[in-house]
């Protein structure tokens, strides 16, 4: 018995929200001297919350902002650990991730 053949997908999603968002926040072309669109979106990229966290030795290193969905329980534990180390949750996670995967 053969599987029913699935017809070709003709319709693409009208708005590729994910790609648009990914590319928009992936950074601007180097050496263009550009500025961001609004203050609310001019936060430092994920992983660069302070000068201490930046990577001055690797100029032009591309950064990607991600969001995570965690259970409240796990988040609370991370937040508690972060507070103990006097870091923000973001700084704390970056510290652990870079330790595991490298800078």
């Amino acid at each position: 018995m053969t599987k029913a053949r699935k017809g070709p997908t003709i319709l693409k999603p009208m708005i590729d929200e994910t790609t648009a968002l990914q590319f928009a926040t992936a950074g601007t072309a180097p050496d263009t001297g550009t500025r961001g669109d609004s203050e609310s979106f001019k936060k430092k990229p994920f992983g660069q919350t302070s000068a201490k966290k930046s990577s001055p030795g690797k100029p032009g290193k591309s950064l990607r902002q991600i969001s995570l969905t965690l259970s409240q329980d796990i988040y609370s534990r991370i937040a508690k650990d972060a507070a103990r180390k006097e870091r923000t949750v973001e700084e704390h996670l970056i510290k652990h991730l870079t330790k595991r995967y490298g800078k």
Partner: peptide, 30 residues
Amino acid sequence: RNHIDLIQKAKEFAGQSRYLVIDGPPRLAE
């Protein structure tokens, strides 16, 4: 007012329009 707002507006109006014309900003940003 920003790229997230733009994507939302494009989604919203794409359903009710035949054409969307986007007048971009004079910046090479998000």
